[in-house]
Amino acid sequence: MEAIRNALDFSDFPRIDRMVALAVVLLLVTFPLFPHSAFAMATMIQFLMFSLYGMGWNTIGGYGGQVDLGKAQYVGIGAYTTTVCLLRWDIPFWVSMPLGACLSIGWSFIIGYPLFQLKGHYFAIATIATSLVLKDIFEVWKFVGAARGLGILPFKYQTPDFLRLIFKEDVYYYYTIFGLFIIGLLYMNWFRKSRLGFQLRSIKDNEEVARSLGINVHWAKIKTYAIATAFVSVVGSFHAVYVKNIEPEDTMSLDISILIALMAMLGGAGSLWGPIIGAGVLIPLKSYLKEWLGAAAGLVGIDLILYGLIIMIISAFEPRGLWGIVEKIRRRKRI
């Protein structure tokens, strides 16, 4: 009961935050009713997906301060589980999605145990390595289509198919991911106030102190890593039915891992709104850049340059991202 109350309780934010959040939610609800291009719709879906990826990353990376650069492997596990389940056994999305999350969580425990023996940069690099290893395995694994990946043929299904989540119109996908977005947001609102949330912030602050306060640091990190993983895996499953064509390269590449982390860091790691703000800035930017420049071959690297720039700017000026700037200004006004 208290958990539900906490999830729905945003009263510790200033009024202005709650008003803006409400306005954004209303905007998101009504967006499909306004005239819009297919490109805008696709961008909005991407924005919601990456907000969710970022929320998941924010648990371990933001509140826990463990810079995780290997989230893409869980996009892959979720996406592949859903696709394989559908193609081989005709298992609907609402079954394969939790199944994928369970597989992801299982895998996260296996690699989380050794990963969290490492600290700082070593941890970050090791997360990259684990993700790339999984990608390499999928690239040669025949059962999952190896490097060519797997495709879902939408015409084989009678659309709209709410069980398998196969639609012709994007608006259905939009509202599905929007629903997940709201659930994710409420979960995160609970998480930040939960015991685990406090423990993580204490760990980020000082692990020795955290240990002296009865916190099993290693276990708290592993648990949180599993939560982050579940978020990413669920969105990965959604990605599979939405895009309908998955390959190791576009689900598990380093770009995606970095983009997930960057999004949350740009918006504000360790804050509720951070990942949403980050996705809100970066996804449209990325989409439009691709639209305008990406066609010209050789210029595709432009988004990598952009990421690099953003990383440098964040680490040089405001490690707590855009939301950190807002909080700093507020703090200054209060004192």
Partner: peptide, 30 residues
Amino acid sequence: ARTFQVYVAAGDLNVLENVMVGCFMHTRSQ
């Protein structure tokens, strides 16, 4: 329980939240 001779609190926890971390050792309820 112990305090630390050199404790650099760089984190974003305020005073109340800091103390709450200790309280969470005995309860799950916020």
